[in-house]
Nucleic acid binder design. Structure first.
Lengths: 159, 159
DNA sequence: CGTATTGTACTATACAAGTAATACAATTGG
DNA sequence: CCAATTGTATTACTTGTATAGTACAATACG
């Protein structure tokens, strides 16, 4: 089991959107590498007791975004598209920046002073990082991705 | 027009939930004071071209939460319940704290270092507050609220 | 007392999103 | 060719939201 997914059917967030987010995040952080295969729709569906179509819907969305490519058949599946890792990370970072601004706006609307909000954030920050130290340097090999050349071939093709 | 509401029917967020959030926030910040009257369901409905039932749904939810009370009749309407301002503000602050943690978690999942995230937040913070200085000291008269005595009478009653 | 205004109740309809059940198409390996 | 496995298409069901229309109960004012 190469990848696990954190899916909570009771969170209110649609399942297929949760899958999309998890894949995007995994690609952005380098946990999923180009041409790496994702779990099949039926695997994920059975593991979380949901309908395969729900997973399929997530994979289709990801394919339209250009994040993955799919192949039917016994050796088929859903794979991370090469050449998009850097772009995905950039987009995810920009969205994170938007979320930062949102939370600043939220505290501002509650009438919080600038200093107090800063202190609250720093507290959360140090508390989280002391309890969850960053595992690896989180380095991503962007060079091999930007070259457009897949890191490895999973199977031979006729091309 | 004492209070305006920021309602965006195209935001994806249900209208009645938007109304609920706006009232809660206005109460938490002291913009809406105990026994202050909200716009009537028909006023709000006409102003935003929405169905009165949708506004009514929001007001009913707020009443169940104990945030407002309602009275029928010509001088009736929907009013902020006294004695809940402090509690509402507390709850809203706790939710803000949760959102802070969420965004910390989000940056952490993207592999950001603690210092870098702290810098990004501080930048957003100073940028926002320099462009949007806090209007008033945002002081809330909690004493008059906690005493259970309405700040003022809008009309005489028989009691 | 009568009228106007307020929130509320009720029913019906419509629409969109999410999910589920089933069957189908494409590919690989025997 | 046949069977297994993959993603996909189609259809339908459920839920949440919003709308519309009508009617009702309570209150205040003249």
């Amino acid at each position: 089991m190469a990848v696990w997914f954190d899916i909570d059917p009771k969170s209110g967030v649609p399942i297929f959107k949760q899958v999309i987010e998890q894949v995007k995040r995994a690609v952005a952080t380098g946990m999923l590498k180009p041409d790496e295969r994702l779990p099949t729709v039926r695997e994920l569906a059975e593991e979380h007791s949901i309908n395969p179509n729900t997973i399929g819907k997530a994979y289709q969305n990801l394919e339209v975004m250009g994040l993955v490519y799919t192949r039917p058949g016994v050796r088929g599946g859903t794979f991370i598209a090469p050449g998009v890792v850097a772009g995905v990370r950039q987009v995810e970072l920009e969205r994170f920046q938007d979320d930062l601004q949102k939370v600043v706006r939220e505290g501002y609307d509650l009438g919080l002073e600038q200093d107090e909000m800063g202190n609250r954030f720093q507290n959360e920050l140090t508390e989280w990082y002391s309890a969850h130290p960053l595992p690896a340097p989180a380095t991503i090999n962007l060079a091999s991705d930007l070259s457009g050349r897949p890191a490895r071939k999973l199977y031979s093709t006729k091309e």
